[in-house]
Design a protein around this nucleic acid. Structure first.
Lengths: 242, 242
DNA sequence: CGCCAGATTGATACACATCAATTCTCGTGG
DNA sequence: CCACGAGAATTGATGTGTATCAATCTGGCG
C-alpha cells in the first residue's frame, strides 16, 4: 500500500511546496515563492504522526495550532450514533486547530504518515505583532481555506454522487498540477471510507461510482488508491458545478 | 412581512453587536467588548442594499472586501442548470469577499435590507501593517467563519432533513441569545427558498419539516417567518450532531 | 376584486442508503 | 511457499428519505 505516497518528496522548506487544500481555489501557502523565508518555521516544533494517529480530539482544550508540513491530515467529527463527516483534507502548508479559545470542534487525524508543526497560540500572537506580514499570510491561508470550505458546502448541498466524485478527482489532480508532473495520474492518500465521509456518501456508493466511471472509460485504476484520469474533459463536464 | 426585523436595532458601533454567523461556534466580532474602538470603521464606506439586491457577482474582480453592519447577507452560487446553494448567511460583524486575488467565487446578496461596509484590499493591507492587533482580529473572524463552514459541512453531509432544520432553528436562537431577549421567538430573515438552499433541501421538504415540527408541538408559527420554539430540549435532541 | 409570489399539501419517482454476500489484498504464521 | 484471517473493496437486492411534479391555499398589493 502506498500510504505516504500521495504527497511525496516534499521540499524541506515550504517555499516551493505545491498549493494544498482541495477545491480549485488558489492556495495561499504560508511561505511565498519570493524572498523571505518562512516566518513561522522557527516558532514551532515538528511532530511526526503515523497513519490514522490522532493529533487532537474534538473537545480537547485548544492550546496549540498546527500546520501540515508533509502528508495528509483530516478534520472530522463523529456523531453519537457513529456517522462521520470529514470537513477537510489538509496538506502541506495548511493551518489547522486555529481556534480562538475554548475547545477544538473537530478531531484532527493523520490520513497518511504526516509531519506536523505545532505552535502555541500565544507565541503566534506575539509573532504577528512583531511581523504584520505574517499576520497577512495567515489571513490569506485562512481565507483560502474558507473558500475551500464553501466549495465543499456546494458539493454536499447540491451535487449528485457522480458529480461529487468527479469534482473530487479533478480537485485532487488540479492540486497536484505542477510542471514536470503527470497530472493524469492521481494517487489518493485516503481510502474509500475517508472518501465517502468527505463526500457525504457511503462507501458502497463511492465504490459504485468509481467503478461506474471506470466502466465508462473516464478513469482507470487497478489499485483503488491509484487513479488515472483518462478523459478529464468528460470529468469536467460531469463536475459542472464548481 | 418583517424583512429587516431579524437583526434589528443594531448598535451604532459594532462593539456590542451580537455574535453573528450561524452554528454554535463562538463568534469573534471585529470590535472587542473592551477598550479600543473598531479599528476598521474609519477605513470603509457604508453602503445600503435593498432586499435581494446583489452586492457583487461570482466572477467579479475582487477589488474590495466587506463587512456586514446590519441586516443579513447571503453568499451563494448557482450552477448552470439552476441549482443554488447558499454557503453562508452573514450578519453584523461578519466579513466577506475576503479574496486574496482574482475573482469572487460566490455572489453576495442582501437577504434583508442591509448596511455593508466596503474596504479596498490595499487599504486593509496597509492598516494591518500599521496595527497588528487588527490583523489578529481579522484572523479571529476568519477562523470563526471557517469553523462555521465546517459545521455546515457536517450538516449537509450527514444530517437528515429534520436534523438540519432543528439545528438551524437552534443556531438561529442561540445566535440571538442575549440578556433581556426572548430566545424562544425566532424571526427568520429569509424565506423558505433561502432556507432550503442553505440546508441543501427543497422548498417542499423544508415546508413539510417545519409543519411536521409544528404538528409535533416542537415549534409554532402562523407567519412562516416568525417561529416560536416550544420545546427547545426536544429540538436539541433532534439536532444531536453539532 | 383578482392577481401573484410564497407556502403548503399530496402523489409519485428515484438516487442513494442499507443490508448482505463475495472477492480482493496483504500481512502472518505454520 | 502456501493456508489462513482480517480489513478493504466490490457487487447485488432491496428499502427509504427526499426530490419531483402537480395542485391548492394564503396573504399582500395594485
Amino acid at each position: 500500500m502506498h500510504a505516504t505516497s500521495a504527497i511525496r518528496a516534499l521540499p524541506a522548506t515550504l517555499s516551493s511546496a505545491p498549493p494544498a487544500s482541495f477545491s480549485n481555489v488558489p492556495k495561499a501557502t504560508l511561505a511565498p515563492s519570493a524572498s523571505s523565508a518562512d516566518p513561522l518555521a522557527p516558532l514551532g516544533t515538528t511532530i511526526t504522526y503515523g497513519r490514522n494517529q490522532t493529533i487532537y480530539f474534538e473537545g480537547d482544550e485548544a492550546e496549540h495550532c498546527f500546520r501540515v508540513r508533509s502528508g495528509t491530515v483530516r478534520l472530522c467529527k463523529v456523531t453519537e450514533d457513529g456517522r462521520r463527516q470529514i470537513a477537510a483534507f489538509l496538506t502541506a502548508g495548511d493551518l489547522f486547530g486555529w481556534v480562538e479559545e475554548g475547545e477544538y470542534r473537530f478531531s484532527a487525524e493523520a490520513v497518511t504518515d504526516a509531519k506536523v508543526e505545532k505552535f502555541s497560540r500565544r507565541r503566534i500572537d506575539q509573532a504577528t505583532t512583531a511581523d504584520p506580514a505574517m499576520g497577512r499570510r495567515i489571513m490569506a491561508v485562512l481565507s483560502a481555506q474558507l473558500a475551500c470550505a464553501h466549495q465543499h458546502v456546494v458539493l454536499l448541498g447540491r451535487l449528485t454522487a457522480y458529480e461529487r466524485v468527479a469534482t473530487f478527482l479533478l480537485d485532487l489532480a488540479r492540486r497536484r498540477r505542477q510542471p514536470g508532473r503527470d497530472d493524469r495520474n492521481v494517487e489518493l492518500a485516503m481510502n474509500r471510507r475517508d472518501l465517502a465521509d468527505y463526500l457525504g456518501l457511503t462507501v458502497e456508493t463511492v465504490s459504485r461510482v468509481m467503478n461506474g466511471l471506470k466502466r465508462k472509460g473516464l478513469i482507470f485504476f487497478s489499485d483503488p488508491e491509484d487513479v488515472q484520469l483518462k478523459q478529464s474533459d468528460a470529468l469536467e463536464r460531469m463536475a459542472l458545478a464548481a
